[in-house]
Simulated assay, not measured.
Amino acid sequence: MLAKSSSSSLQQRRRCSSVTRATRVTPLAAATTPRAPVSSDFRIKNAPSIEERKGYAGYDAVGFTYEDFEDALLEHDGRLMFDIGSFVTGSVASLDSRGAYIDIGAKALAFCPTEELSSTRVGRASDVLQLGMLREFQVVREDRHDNVLIVSLKAAEAKIAWKRIRQMAAEDVTVMGKVSDANRGGVIVNVEGVQGFVPSSHLSVSLSAINNGDTLPLKFLETDEIRQRLVLSNRRAKVEKAITFKVGDVVVGTIASVKPYGAFVDIGGVNGLLHISQLSHERIANINSVISVGQQVKVMVLSQDQQRGRVSLSTKKLEPTPGDMVNNPQLVFEKAEMMAEAFKQRVAAAEAAARAEEAKLASEIAGQALGEESLAAGASEEKAEASEE
């Protein structure tokens, strides 16, 4: 019975193939050869039905028709041409509670969720965008569930912001950053829409004195767009602002904190280090017995490192007599300018002596070279005279 059924099916397929070959018309023949009208009652004997022909072609197995394929192309048209990570310009078509629908020139609108509108928290899309507004977005992913491209205004703006940050870092300009959070290691700030970090060691004031929402002047320490790493220094910016200080200047400061190795002195918004070795000529066993937090002192600027944002200070150089900072600090305060002037004069004299020594050495070297040239010239002349004789 099975063999008979298979044989019958094979014969039916052969008849179908024969009919198809017999009725196939080439495009050229169809264009050049007139055909008689076909009656609506015309039927090919034993021709398979449409459903049978679909079965031969495998439609039942695939479950996907040419009409379905065309619908799929229409559905995906305009989305596949945009690569993930590419930038597109689009206008805001509509806004809702979840985000914004963006017309990017495709047949389907793209979607920008609320969390992709800004690096800061946004309550509603209308807080950032308005209908008809033209902006640049970055394609970040494809939502296959809703069949829509997801774009990000935040990512596009971050790309532009990083470009500005690289330019400003190359020019070493001072920027303003808004504090958004703090931890034991430092504070998190927002600079040009990019999140950055300021270590505690690069703050010009104590961490406890900084609050969320504060604005700090900052200098760039590290900019790495690939690793999304932005590190800044508040101290460097403050030191640059206080660039009027010169080595040998005497400034009035307040002890901000005391450590075993020295004290940090606030000298007009900048914390300078008064190392314990620069406190007095006399050996100090306990620094707290000499100075305390809140105490006002006069200090002399020893050095300034703009790159590292550090200022070194000294009261040792201001002592009229070695040990006065321990035994009579008020005398040091009163005589500070006089002692600093004497220090500057000694430094100037030492520098002048060094320059004179360098000039003397250069003159001796030049004289020695001239003498050697004269000897060489004399030897050449004697040799020439000898050859003439």
Rank of each mutant, 00 (worst) to 15 (best):
A47L: 12
A47S: 11
S49N: 03
E51I: 11
R53A: 05
K54C: 15
G55R: 15
G55Q: 14
Y56P: 06
A57C: 07
A57Q: 06
G63F: 10
E67D: 15
F69Q: 12
E70R: 15
E70Y: 06
E70D: 13
D71P: 01
D71N: 14
A72S: 08
L73H: 11
L74Y: 12
E75N: 08
H76C: 10
H76R: 12
H76T: 12
G78A: 04
L80M: 14
L80W: 13
M81T: 11
D83Q: 12
T89A: 12
T89I: 11
T89E: 14
V92G: 01
A93E: 11
A93W: 06
S94C: 03
S94K: 07
D96V: 01
D96F: 05
D96I: 03
S97Y: 07
A100T: 02
A100Y: 05
I102H: 03
I102Q: 04
D103Q: 06
I104Y: 00
A106G: 15
A106M: 07
L109W: 02
C112I: 05
C112S: 10
S119F: 10
T120Q: 15
V122I: 13
R124G: 05
A125C: 06
A125V: 09
D127V: 03
V128K: 09
V128R: 08
V128F: 01
L129F: 07
Q130L: 05
Q130G: 10
L131I: 06
G132R: 05
G132Y: 02
M133L: 08
L134S: 06
R135K: 10
E136W: 00
F137R: 05
V139H: 00
V139F: 02
V139C: 01
V140S: 11
R141V: 03
E142N: 13
D143E: 08
D143V: 09
H145K: 14
H145R: 15
D146M: 09
N147F: 09
N147R: 15
V148W: 00
L149S: 01
I150Y: 04
I150E: 06
V151K: 03
V151Q: 02
S152L: 10
S152C: 09
S152N: 08
S152W: 13
L153R: 02
K154D: 02
A155F: 04
A155G: 00
A155H: 08
W162F: 12
K163D: 12
R164L: 13
R164Q: 11
R166P: 02
A169N: 14
A169G: 06
A170P: 00
A170D: 15
E171Q: 15
D172H: 12
D172W: 05
V173L: 14
V175P: 13
M176P: 00
G177T: 08
V179D: 09
S180R: 13
S180L: 15
D181S: 14
D181Y: 01
